[in-house]
């Protein structure tokens, strides 16, 4: 690791000032992503401001019925929280489908949103990678790109967004709350993540020094069916090749509204809007599921080794829809 100075934040405003004051300073929460990438010299902060002990570790119901999850709440605490399991089951399922208990016990909600791609050309510290070294090129595009994204990519970057939690948050229309020492703002989860475009090194709409304080989940009106399907190279403790989160509102035997998002196949958490539109107002039907799922992969741009991904993602969507609508 590059040498750095380490300081413990005493309060949120002081932490924000400390990071804002130094361009190469970073927040340190659980550390499960950052410490790993620092060992690889992919991340080289000169200052770490430890925010683990700040009072942001609460899950509470707000007056408007939404749920606020503090940025410092661990992934395990979210996944096993009674309110989350009862009303936002897709979030619990997605978190438990990722990493291991050891990592989920330490990784925080805020940190999870900022986890970085598992693209091997990004992590190796040697290859040309526009995300790690802007302007150097993208060796993944012409290399062994089996795990690369097929949606949302650009000429500069084909890296896949790796997480599970944010895929579920997207299907729940979550809102990210951020702050500086002066002000606060809210960012819709879909706007929080950026497409790579010409600046793949910039992955979120956070400004330097802004701190994530909480993630809120809007109230879900009426009963929903929620589920997360994840397909990967081994049964557990592995990143997704394709995953699908679904939240369905049903009225009798009809799907009145669907929110579906994809992981493992896109540059950022990906909303399957074409699928959602085709399901609204329809009755569950396997041919419809197939057609609606495929519609969201029409824009896919597969490369040499990841041509299987559009079909895999299509089937992930089909499977989650089938499981949710077959369940009693």
């Amino acid at each position: 690791m590059q040498p750095f100075t380490y300081e413990k934040a005493t309060d949120q405003a002081a932490a924000a000032r400390a990071v804002a004051a130094e361009k190469t300073a970073k927040y340190l929460a659980g550390g499960t992503t950052l410490v790993d990438l620092m060992k690889l010299y992919v991340e080289t902060p000169t200052k770490l401001v430890d925010i683990k002990r700040l009072p942001m570790a609460e899950i509470r119901r707000e007056a408007d019925g939404s749920i606020s999850i503090g940025a410092g709440v661990t992934n395990s605490a979210v996944a096993y929280h009674e309110l989350v399991q009862k009303e936002y089951a897709v979030l619990s399922q997605a978190i438990l489908a990722g990493a291991s208990t050891q990592i989920r016990n330490v990784a925080t909600v805020g940190g999870n949103l900022l986890q970085r791609t598992r693209c091997p050309y990004f992590r190796d510290g040697i290859s040309n990678c526009n995300k790690r070294t802007p302007g150097s090129g993208c060796d993944m595009a012409t290399g062994f790109n089996r795990t690369a994204a097929v949606l949302g990519t650009s000429d500069r970057c084909v890296a896949t967004y790796p997480g599970d939690m944010a895929i579920a948050l997207l299907s729940l229309d979550a809102v990210v709350h951020v702050a500086t020492d002066q002000a606060t703002r809210k960012i819709a989860i879909d706007d929080f993540f950026l497409l790579p475009g010409n600046t793949p090194e910039k992955e979120t709409s956070l400004s330097h020094g802004e701190i994530i304080t909480a993630v809120s989940l809007p109230r879900i009106d009426g009963g929903t069916k929620q589920g997360y399907v994840k397909v990967r190279d081994r049964a557990s403790y592995e990143f997704a090749l394709a995953s699908a989160a679904a939240v369905l509102w049903m009225d009798g035997g009809t799907i009145t509204q669907a929110r579906i998002s994809l992981g493992g196949v896109a540059s950022k958490p990906w909303r399957a809007k074409e699928t959602e539109a085709m399901l609204a107002g329809k009755k569950p039907d396997s041919a419809l599921f197939r057609e609606a799922a495929a519609a969201s992969l029409k824009a896919a741009t597969p490369m040499k080794y990841n041509a299987f991904k559009p079909e895999l993602a299509t089937r992930a969507i089909e499977r989650v829809l089938t499981e949710l609508t077959q369940a009693a």
Partner: peptide, 11 residues
């Protein structure tokens, strides 16, 4: 349970 390789002792 936690992974001691991914946390700084200072934390």
């Amino acid at each position: 349970r936690a992974l001691s390789c991914l946390m700084l002792a200072a934390q």
